[in-house]
Design a binder for these strands. Structure first.
Lengths: 145, 145
DNA sequence: CTCTTTTAGATGCATCTGCATGTATATATA
DNA sequence: TATATATACATGCAGATGCATCTAAAAGAG
């Protein structure tokens, strides 16, 4: 199994790129078909939903989502323009702002999940046993660390 | 391990997205630092290099790379504009063209690989044993099928 | 306090992407 | 052969992304 040590790494890499592309394309297509916002919005909505009343500041969100600053800035702009979130000024820091979900945002998050959740399970759950999914999650986790 | 069957799938999904983002960002950054073309170019260059003298037609490449047609069309346009590939008209099919790497393209492919290969191994190889890489590759392969 | 540096976030500009559609050739059908 | 349909590839346009830079407020140095 280790004749060519580099080979297995290359294969893992290639499959990571392909699996990501295939699976993501499928899921995004389902969201679009349901006339829902793209996937990236979900992450923001979900983090803010979890954060609750106090919300989060953009830079906190940025660290959670691993997005470049300018990317998040514009993503928030779009999400806000749809009335899903609200920006509140904060007294402690005049540079900053607090992001809080609006009712509409809470609602759309759920609506997205109603499509997103099943889509994930179709894309992943149908191809892997539960045990395999756990293994996959663990192996991928090592790449992140 | 199967208390909550959906949970493991969600975790695998989340980690797939994160691992892809983290690892890809790092690799792309290394290519950019070396003033080399972005990753997407490599796939094209590599397929054409493997295809050799006869090259490939865009629609063949498209199937191999799983790219949308318009995406590939423009990607080829950019790669061609740098003089890395040549489009040849073909007699059998007046609609089509044959894509063949130029010398410059062969050269740049190698140069990219000189950075890309080590980058992959840093991103993946250093976090996984060879056995783990094989397992990861197999699990990911199931998602593609 | 004044001056410098750091941090939070926005934005102009060029490039890239996605979608829809266009053009041209090839194939199928009548 | 005339006509419809399908396939190969390109492209106009709107929106998204990446990069560098900007503004403003905070924190630190003297």
């Amino acid at each position: 199994m280790d004749k060519n040590p580099g080979k297995s790494v290359d294969q893992a890499w290639t499959n990571l790129l392909r699996a990501h592309r295939v699976v993501l394309t499928g899921v995004e297509a389902k969201l679009k078909a349901a006339r829902l916002p793209p996937l990236a919005w979900y992450d923001v909505l979900w983090e803010l939903d979890k954060a609750g009343k106090d919300g989060l500041r953009p830079f906190e969100l940025q660290k959670k989502l691993l997005l470049p600053q300018y990317h998040l800035s514009r993503l928030l702009e779009r999400i806000e323009s749809k009335g899903y979130l609200e920006r509140q000024a904060i007294k402690e820091d005049g540079r900053g702002q607090r992001l809080v979900l609006c009712k509409k945002g809470v609602k759309i998050r759920q609506e997205i999940w109603d499509v997103y959740g099943p889509a994930i399970h179709a894309a992943v759950g149908e191809h892997l046993s539960s045990t395999e999914a756990v293994k996959l999650a663990k192996l991928l986790a090592k790449l992140i660390a």
